[in-house]
C-alpha cells in the first residue's frame, strides 16, 4: 500500500510519498496529487520519495505525468530524497533528483 500527505515549501507544494508505488497504487496517488494541484496551483511541485520502500516503472509514469502538468501550469517539478534502490530506477529513466 502507498500513501501521500501534503505540505508546503517556500514556493509550492510538497507531496510526501510513502509505501510501495506500482501500477495499482499509482492510480490513487495520481488522483490525490492532481486534486491538490488543481486547488493549490503551485509554482513548484516537489515529490518526496524518502518514505517509498518500493517503486517500479509505474512511479516513473507518475513522475512524468506530473511533470507535464506542472509544465502546463508554467511551473516545475522537483524529485527529492529517493532511497538507493529508487535512485537506480530514476537513473535508468534519466530523471534527475536532489
Amino acid at each position: 500500500m502507498s500513501n501521500v500527505r501534503f505540505g508546503d515549501s517556500s514556493d509550492g507544494l510538497v507531496a510526501y510519498l510513502s509505501g510501495e508505488i506500482d501500477h495499482h497504487s499509482a492510480q490513487q496517488l495520481r488522483m490525490e496529487i492532481d486534486a491538490q494541484l488543481q486547488n493549490a496551483l503551485p509554482r513548484t511541485l516537489t515529490l518526496d520519495f524518502a518514505g517509498v520502500s518500493f517503486m517500479d516503472s509505474s512511479g516513473i509514469g507518475l513522475i512524468l505525468g506530473r511533470a507535464r502538468r506542472m509544465s502546463a501550469l508554467d511551473g516545475r517539478l522537483v524529485v527529492q530524497h529517493p532511497p538507493r534502490q529508487i535512485q537506480k530506477m530514476l537513473d535508468l529513466a534519466r530523471v534527475s533528483y536532489i
Binding site: A26, R30, D56, S57, S58, I60, G61, L62, L64, G65, R68, K88, M89, L92, A93
Partner: peptide, 14 residues
C-alpha cells in the same frame, strides 16, 4: 500520459 514504456528496459537492467 501515465505509462513510461520502460517495463522491459527495467527488466533487462535489473
Amino acid at each position: 500520459e501515465e505509462r513510461s514504456g520502460l517495463g522491459f528496459s527495467v527488466m533487462q537492467s535489473f
